[in-house]
Amino acid sequence: MTQVSNRSDPGSASPPGGPALTALTALAPALWGTTYLVTTEFLPPGHPLASGVIRALPAGLVLLAATRTPPRGAWLWRSLVLGTLNIGALFALLFAAAYRLPGGVAATLFAIQPLLVVGLAFLLLGERPTRWRLGWGLAGAAGVGLIVLQGRVSVDPWGVLAGIAAAASMACGLVLTKRWGLPRGAGPAAFAGWQLTAGGLVLLPLALALEGLPPAPDPAAIGGYAWLAIPGALLTYPLWFRGLGRMPVVAVSFLPLLSPVVAALLGLLFLGESLTPWQCLGFALALAAIAAAQLTPGAARALIRLPSPRKGA
């Protein structure tokens, strides 16, 4: 497979591939939003790094076995770099932030990721930031903040640092993935397998050194681990990298805002949580930012422009 161009048509109404590709790519962060509920309700506490290993490494090995396409040449070290940024470091930092920060503060910090991607895309890809996407990036972060920040919030500075570092790790991984493109001769499934395997192997020694072996799983934990490994990694990461290869990187960077939105909805449906009017406004802002980031200002105006009524109608 040839490398995918990093440029997109600035006048297009949607990313290359159209709404269907956007919807399939968005399915990945939407399913990742279930991680919060699964982790807190089904998995044993105190082993977040081990959970990351169980989520990433088996899925990566299955994809490697299914595609029979190992990395070669420069992709040996590139896969390690991308697997660390997109999987290993990301999982470790996200769990560290979640354990140190209350409620959804970690998710709010992670919502700055589209803004980081805008800056990195300018530096590494030559994509000039637009006021349109900068503005919607701020709106999306504000929307996520309204969804997840409730009541009095105490802030752990190390947790804040971990949350910002997690956003930076994924932003770097997204932009480098776009810069290097999909490797020749390998599809999205093989590409995902390389990174999941590398990320799991990076996490494994940390998990053993810092946490030890997790306890023997009960049926609920087995189901939780299976959910994180199969829908949460094996099925979603090929979709994610397929979309990233074909869509503008800044547009893709807004889609992870779906994760805290889905997490909040699951809390509403299954944990008896309720939504305030401010949270409803946050949902509207976050979803509007995700949708608007897929369009140019001209395309957005064209979509909302009503046709003039015909005479005699």
Rank of each mutant, 00 (worst) to 15 (best):
L213Y: 09
P58A: 04
L285P: 08
L49W: 06
I230C: 15
L94N: 15
P48H: 03
A299P: 11
A141L: 08
L295K: 12
A50C: 10
A192M: 08
P277H: 03
A111G: 08
G185H: 00
G104L: 01
P70K: 00
D9T: 05
R242F: 10
K311F: 00
L24E: 13
L239E: 04
G200R: 01
G232D: 12
T39S: 11
Q3R: 05
L37M: 09
T69C: 12
L93Y: 07
L204I: 11
G11P: 10
I290K: 02
G199S: 14
A162S: 15
W194M: 05
R184I: 09
A141M: 06
S169C: 09
R131W: 13
A74M: 11
G159E: 06
F91S: 14
I304E: 03
L258F: 03
G33P: 14
L138N: 09
L281K: 02
V155D: 03
F42S: 13
P48E: 04
G46N: 06
L271T: 08
G193Y: 05
L115Y: 04
S259M: 07
G200S: 10
L244E: 01
P219R: 04
A59S: 08
G159D: 15
G52I: 11
L21T: 14
P129K: 02
R100Q: 15
W180C: 11
P277E: 03
A50S: 15
L275P: 14
V105P: 10
A233H: 05
R55C: 13
E211H: 01
L124K: 11
P297V: 02
A96Y: 14
F42E: 12
A220H: 07
T34G: 08
A226K: 06
P157H: 04
R301D: 14
A171S: 10
E41M: 12
V81A: 15
P188Q: 00
A92D: 15
R7G: 13
A13D: 07
L255F: 03
A226G: 11
A121H: 05
P114R: 01
P157C: 06
G140I: 01
S8P: 13
S169E: 01
L266P: 10
L265H: 08
P15K: 00
G104Y: 06
A229S: 07
W158D: 14
R133S: 05
P231H: 04
L295E: 15
I230L: 11
A251Q: 06
V38A: 00
T40I: 09
K311V: 00
F270R: 08
P10I: 03
T69A: 13
R72N: 07
D156K: 02
Q113K: 07
A198S: 10
S51E: 12
A192C: 13
A23Y: 06
S14L: 15
E127F: 13
A141W: 01
T67L: 01
Q279T: 15
R78F: 10
L120P: 11
V252D: 02
G140V: 02
L116S: 13
A220R: 12
P307Q: 00
G137Y: 01
L203D: 04
S154E: 15
L201G: 05
L206H: 07
R72C: 07
A30M: 11
F42C: 09
R242D: 13
L271F: 07
S51H: 11
A293P: 05
P260G: 00
A288K: 05
L182R: 12
R68H: 10
G17I: 06
Q294C: 05
G140K: 00
G73N: 04
